[in-house]
Design a protein around this nucleic acid. Structure first.
Lengths: 257, 257
DNA sequence: ACATTTTTGTTGCTTTTATAACATTTCTAT
DNA sequence: ATAGAAATGTTATAAAAGCAACAAAAATGT
């Protein structure tokens, strides 16, 4: 990476952490002239990443503040690029008046974050992560399945959660998983996750599995569905063609983004 | 609320939405001089709510979350000190192994924040505010009553919420209110709040009303209990002695902190 | 109604930033 | 190595913001 790029990257990182910074402070911190910073900012502003006011740079990264930030720092920072592509593909499937289940897990949380704003939706969240990423959407009715909070998964467990899921009917469910393979099916790591995911599948028309290719071939302790139980799989381009083909043959649409 | 307060509140709201704004823009938007805005910003900066750079105001993200936002940008900003004293008194009543209901509202959210950490508790939260203030407490089992999210109150509404409350039994319930008086009882502003508060009262041994003295004498549309239905009232020192005495005579303990 | 306090606006001056044009350095490819 | 390109620094001028002191207006209390 060129020095100038590295500097801009550093600036961005600093801005996201600190919320804002003056151009003069950036110049002295990075030991370059203010003109250099200005030119950098012009570039970043052109990309829509920052906004430059009078002497001050403010990161414009979509609400990287407080709640959303919390939701993402906790998420495993692995395969973020893939997960984001998957999330965007998933979000682009959503249509006005859709009723959505958003599962726990970092990929599903990203789906929540990428959901179109301004169109009427009903969004039923199963994890705090997903919820925090949609709360505040003015056009959406946001529902959270409550219960006992599990900090490691950000999911609420309990009969109330299951009951709530059973009471609703969704047009689309975005479900995550810890592992998926053709022979042993789709798996997750906990018993309560299993109950929730199964309830979600039973309450939804379109069942969409969002899982990056690192999950492919893996198994975890709790089996909750076969791949063919899903109407669609959204994953990245890391799956072998043979696998893609055989999943498609079993009746599940596949998007590899 | 005084005009100046209203203006500062508007500014804060605008800042949280937009991330940042120049002083000159705020001045023309609110049709006051830049000096007025500058002085406002000095005030808000003193409270640690914003940071002023050269001509630009940036909200500080640490404080912009749930509670502070609610407690300081909304109309209740005036009574923060009282609420905090009330919250601390309430929190000091809590003992190990207690099972707690924490209602919605800024005062109850403060109770949640002031709860002792490290002692085993079961904490059932009825609002996002309260929840975010206790999530992460390692010694506590944290439960959130889910349902349809209401942004203006940060509360989750729905049959699931009520069912969850009915299913639990608490040793202490910290309940908030919009108004309370001896003749017309304790009132809140919404129907769903009413259902929740009544369910909480029916599921709890000790029923503790936390409400600052500005609520005294007021009525709101929804009546949900008499003052004598509460085992205890925690308020500040703004109630007339005669009222304190007559509430005590009716069998409700009163702490005026 | 009056005086007092608080809030807001105005002015002049200082300091900081923006911008453009030009000079210099650093990088890159042959 | 060297020319050309890209990146960076410098300077001068214009524009905008900061600041302090004072004036005017509005709110408050007696």
């Amino acid at each position: 990476m060129a020095d100038s790029e590295k500097r801009r990257s550093l600036i961005q990182q600093y801005l996201v952490q600190n919320g804002a910074c003056s151009i003069s402070a950036l110049a002295s911190r990075l030991e370059v002239s203010t003109m250099t910073i200005r030119r950098d900012m012009e570039l970043l502003a052109g990309k829509g990443l920052v906004r430059v006011y009078h002497g001050v740079v403010v990161p414009l990264k979509e609400e990287a503040t407080s709640l959303q930030e919390y939701a993402l720092t906790k998420a495993e920072a692995v395969h973020v690029q893939e997960k984001l592509r998957i999330a965007r593909a998933a979000a682009s499937m959503v249509e006005p008046e859709d009723i959505l289940f958003i599962d726990g897990g970092s990929t599903a949380a990203l789906v929540a974050r990428e959901l179109p704003r301004g169109i009427p939706l009903t969004i039923i969240c199963l994890s705090l992560n997903a919820f925090l990423n949609v709360a505040g959407n003015p056009a959406a009715e946001v529902i959270l399945a409550g219960g006992i909070y599990h900090e490691e998964t950000h999911i609420f467990e309990g009969p109330e959660s299951i009951e709530l899921i059973r009471r609703y009917r969704a047009t689309k469910a975005f479900v995550s998983a810890n592992g998926f393979r053709e022979d042993l099916g789709v798996t997750c790591s906990n018993n309560y996750l299993l109950s929730i995911k199964q309830a979600v599948l039973r309450s939804s028309i379109q069942k969409i599995l969002v899982a990056d290719s690192s999950k492919f071939g893996k198994v975890n302790s709790c089996y909750f569905a076969d791949l063919s139980d899903f109407s669609e799989l959204i994953t990245d381009d890391g799956l072998p063609d043979s696998a893609l083909q055989s999943i498609r043959d079993s009746g599940t649409k596949v998007q590899a983004v």
